[in-house]
Amino acid sequence: MKSRIKECISSSVENYTCILNDKNIQANIEKVIALSVKAFKNDKKMLFCGNGGSASDAQHIAAELSGRFYANRPPLYAEALNVNSSYITAVANDLGYDKTYSRMLEACGRAGDILVGISTSGNSKNVIKALEKANEIGLTTIGFTGINAGKMNSICDIIIEVPSDDTPRIQEAHILIGHIICQIIEEEMFPDA
């Protein structure tokens, strides 16, 4: 039992070490931050979506921005597309689950906003459709995924590709990267806070 626990921890540490040494992913994180800061300064917003654990990542990261990260400062307009269960169940039931995020995105996404789609496989249909709709409307599209970026690769403006194919490790890295992005956006937006 103890050795299995240690195995999990060490595979997580290994994953983080890969990210620590991955210049490409860090360059892309930097680009996401710069684009987000620019969007917020232009009165645009950040939207997030994902399924399951990635849905909680989506609302977690959105909340760090609209609520607070470290600083007492004004809110930033960020929201997850999955947070209204009445909407999700209605659209899934009536129009199909694939449409859940693209339809909400069509309702609230505007040119110049940012959509972050989170999918460990890079293939979640409702996330892909939301990213496609976002491109069409003129949002900047960002994908958080794992080592085989799947369909996301050809759709997103920027791909954050965690160098792992193990879902829990990918998700842990996504929330780490989400935290990094929120922290630096906050510092850049509110240097005096």
Binding site: K31, A111, G112, N135, I137, G138, L139, T140, D157, I158
Partner: peptide, 21 residues
């Protein structure tokens, strides 16, 4: 530089959508 505007990326088209909504 892997920017978001150089085709096949779509940044220039998205900027046009911002300018011509």
């Amino acid at each position: 530089m892997d920017c978001i505007c150089r085709k096949p990326k779509t940044g220039m088209i998205k900027n046009a959508i911002i300018d011509f909504p």
